[in-house]
């Protein structure tokens, strides 16, 4: 059933990679951490193969674009969650924060009729501030992350409804807004590859997040705090400040997700959002990030996000009843994390 040739190719590709700087770079990008993700990656490939055989509608360009679009939103949210989860924290507010950011973009662009860039800045800034606020509640008021962000989740849900008057805000004044997510820059250059911008944005976000996580002080403290917060504090690092920054960064990334979603449906839907946080968390843990903190990769998270959206999409195409879609998705999440646990034990 599994496709050994494909897996083997992948491995050989790494082993046979060029010499010198290229090899070093490859090792960095695809190093052991990435190899560990092979398992999640293999399950993703398996799912793709299964669905393409099961339904001819699956491997159609339109459907693939759908999947990319859906993954973009959940993937970006999952990136935000990855940072927080590596610190051994949790952010339940990412879904409603995403919506609130989209609503704020709507306020700037549709209510106030300001230029597009202000909407983008407003969404990202709103996310950053809200995330930082969660961080401050967690560090300064010492409210556990689960509770603090549960509270924020409801607060933001309410605020999104209040600000929008409980009605969708359409981006009718900003013609280009839908381009952010729906157009295909790549498709213009390479007509055979009509990959939507949303997917490109996801890739760019993933690369940036990887760099931040693995090569900057912020990333180092993210892992360190998740590994042993007290030790970091005793080392003279201002843990509170860094945690606020980490939650703030997560919030800003939620702002990007909000823009992607709003642009995709060309409107800000204030009632949407709740529930996205659980999909994001599922993607993160399927990708091998531990909820107890200290370990995790962005690549894993992205693969996790793809598994989630391929699964949802595929089941829908196979006309599996909604009820059973939930059941299957739930079981897959548990199995994926269980497989990861087994691998870890052996490794």
């Amino acid at each position: 059933m599994s496709d050994p040739a494909l897996v083997k190719d992948h491995k050989d590709g790494i082993a046979a990679s060029g010499s010198g700087a290229v090899a070093a770079l490859r090792r960095r990008l695809l190093g052991p951490a990435a190899l560990q993700k092979l398992l999640a990656f293999a399950s993703l490939v398996l799912l793709l193969i299964y669905f393409s055989f099961a339904s001819p509608a699956f491997m159609q360009t339109d459907n693939m674009i759908n999947i990319l679009q859906a993954t973009a939103v959940n993937g970006v949210l999952a990136i935000a969650s990855t940072f927080v989860i590596i610190t051994a924290g949790i952010d339940l507010s990412v879904g409603t924060l995403m919506t609130f950011c989209a609503v704020m973009a709507g306020v700037f662009l549709t209510y106030w009729e300001l230029p597009m860039w202000t909407g983008i800045v407003a969404a990202i800034l709103t996310g950053a501030l809200s995330g930082a606020l969660s961080g401050a509640v967690i560090t300064k008021m010492k409210v556990p992350p689960f509770i603090a962000t549960l509270g924020m989740m409801l607060v933001l849900k309410g605020l999104a409804l209040v600000v929008s008057g409980s009605k969708p805000i359409y981006f009718s004044n900003t013609e280009n807004f839908s381009m952010i997510s729906q157009d295909s820059l790549l498709g213009v250059l390479v007509p055979d590859l009509p990959i939507p911008n949303a997917a490109l944005i996801l890739i760019v976000m993933a690369v940036l997040a990887s760099i931040v996580l693995n090569r900057t002080a912020l990333g180092r403290y993210t892992f360190a705090i998740g590994s042993n917060e007290e030790a970091v504090r005793l080392s003279g690092v201002n843990v509170d400040r860094w945690k606020i920054v980490i939650y703030g960064l997560g919030g800003a990334i939620c702002g990007v997700a909000g823009l992607l979603l709003a642009s995709r449906i060309n409107s800000a839907q204030p009632a949407l959002g709740q529930g996205y946080e659980l999909d994001a968390i599922a993607a993160v843990v399927i990708g091998g990030t531990s909820l107890s903190g200290g370990t995790g990769t962005i690549l894993g998270t992205i693969i996790g996000a793809f598994i989630m959206s391929v699964l949802t999409n595929g089941l829908r195409i196979l006309s599996v009843a909604q009820e059973w879609q939930f059941v299957v998705t739930g079981i897959i999440i548990i199995l994926a994390v269980y497989a990861d646990m087994l691998r870890r034990k052996r490794g």
Binding site: F223, A224, G294
Partner: peptide
Amino acid sequence: QELQLMNHL
């Protein structure tokens, strides 16, 4: 007295 290390690092 008690080790204060970050095990994952």
